[in-house]
């Protein structure tokens, strides 16, 4: 069998693997963003023990490897009654992992809120809610956008690791294909190129969005359409 035939033969498996990869990435990202935003908000509450707990969560997650966290939940979980399928464990782990990183980014975002601009808004009598969604959120999102994207990119690369606990993602399918066909290298090489192109595309696309988002801060470019 030549390479093309091999690929054709395995196409359905590879496609389903790609689907699983994409799906885990999306779910993990959404879960991570939700956890990160909640943790960042909760950390602003003046409750000491809560702050400690959240701080410990962030430090532990950011201080240990993702693979270890995955093993801890998937293999260690059952001994304290947490039994999850590989897929669920993988998504939960991605979310909890990314959540700690997102939480730090959001915290920095809160700290960098434009005090004077908010004051100006309240001097006109704008409501807290109007100030939040017209002034604070837009400036904060613009400021943290690059960090968010870089976490999302890292997360897309972490999804590969789920194959180790038998989540049938692209990496897993490529490996099973290589085992059956004895042509290990070409499959992995194709996977490497796939990731390279994917990450490069996401990075370029986000750079484009970032450029649009920060047009207002560029002195050189043309005026906007009103």
């Amino acid at each position: 069998m030549n390479m093309l035939q091999t690929l054709w033969h395995y196409a359905p498996l590879l496609l389903s693997g790609a689907g699983v990869t994409l799906w885990t990435w999306l779910l993990g990202s959404v879960l991570g963003l939700a956890i990160g935003a909640s943790v960042a908000l909760l950390r602003r509450l003046p409750v000491r023990p809560l702050q400690w707990v959240l701080r410990i969560y962030i430090e532990i997650i950011r201080g240990t490897p993702f693979l270890l966290q995955l093993f801890l939940l998937y293999s260690g979980g059952p001994s304290i009654g947490i039994r999850l399928s590989a897929l669920t464990a993988g998504v939960v782990c991605l979310g909890v992992h990314a959540g700690a990183y997102f939480a730090e980014v959001f915290r920095a975002g809160f700290e960098g809120l434009p005090k004077g601009q908010i004051e100006a808004a309240s001097s006109f009598g704008m409501t807290s809610f109007q100030i939040l969604y017209r002034i604070s959120l837009p400036t904060m999102l613009v400021a943290i956008f690059p960090s968010i994207v870089s976490i999302l990119i890292s997360l897309s690369k972490e999804t590969v690791i789920l194959s180790i606990i038998t989540v049938p993602n692209l990496m897993y399918q490529v490996q099973s294909m290589t085992v059956e066909t004895y042509s290990a290298f070409s499959g992995i090489a194709a996977l490497a190129v796939f990731y390279w192109v994917f990450v490069e595309c996401v990075a370029r696309f986000s750079a484009l969005i970032e450029y649009r988002l920060t047009l207002f801060a560029r002195r050189d470019s043309a005026e906007v359409r009103a």
């Binding site: 690791i161 290990a184 090489a189 994917f198 990075a203």
Partner: peptide, 14 residues
């Protein structure tokens, strides 16, 4: 861009 795009696990297998 290649080094930053390819996940370590894939690089390792490669």
């Amino acid at each position: 861009s290649f080094c930053r795009g390819v996940p370590l696990l894939v690089m390792l297998m490669l």
